[in-house]
Amino acid sequence: MRRTETLLAIGGAALLVLLAILAPWLRFVLTIALAKGVAVLGILLLLRAGQVSFGHALYLSFGAYTVAFLAPAMPEALILMPVAMLLSGLLGLVIGLFVSRYRDIFFSMLNLAISMVFYSLLEKLYHYTKGTDGIRVGVPRFLGMALERDQFEWAMFGTALVLALAIGCFVRLYLASPMGQALSAIKTRETRLEFMGLPARAVLLSAYVLSALMGGLAGSIIAMTTRHVTPLLGYWTVSGELVFIAILGGAGAALGPFLGAVTFELVRVYAAASFADAWQAILGLVLLGVILFFSRGLWGMVESLWRRRA
């Protein structure tokens, strides 16, 4: 299965590149999907510990606004991304120190509450954030080069793809490592983990900080791709969307989030294109169908297909 996963990842990446070449407008949609996939990988880590965060849009929007505020002073994509990621990780550490004490519904709700506080700040601090109208992000340089729109879109798409593959690999390794195994232990029996001498809080906190790092990175990619950030990116519906993508894709493997994110975005775009009036209903029905008939998500579907053949 492991080799299959690698092959599937490479095949999927090749397919995305092909799609992006054939349909230039899809490049944008796919970049966003890859970025969201990265954020959902963070959610996946927490899901391993049985914890659902309904507030990870906080890190997405924090990363995006970091880019929006820093871009005029430092218009270099390859600096903005790590800076947004690190700052977001730092925020994750501070918040994580609090929320990692809680489990289950309390963990979910606290995350939700904190993310909504940040959302309100983005909306209310009108003179700094321009409120709901949002902030425009200029085209940053890439490796010191000022690129044309088309080239820049390719650069962002390529970066997102490479990062998605790299972080996907990392998450797989992490989940296989003792730290990752300990996450599953939090889900099954936390007390035993403590008896073994592993602090459950630290295990969860490190996963939380990692997820914040990924959220911030995803936010920075989204900001530089859409080039206009609004507080809506930090709204609870976006957090819900991330959790939803995680469930849709399947929490079983690192490929799941990307499968989920690409499917989600494509269904949304095609539904919106074909039924401008009723696209929400179409999207909802498709997603409901997947959830009802493939309880382990799209990745579970792929897995069972593979097993049957083997």
Binding site: W25, F28, V29, I32, I222, T226, H228, L232, R268, A272
Partner: peptide
Amino acid sequence: SFVDENPGTEHLVGEFRRLVQS
């Protein structure tokens, strides 16, 4: 062809591209 603005900026700028490029 109509596009719904309600889902927010990120969706809208994607749809703008689709309208123009596709």
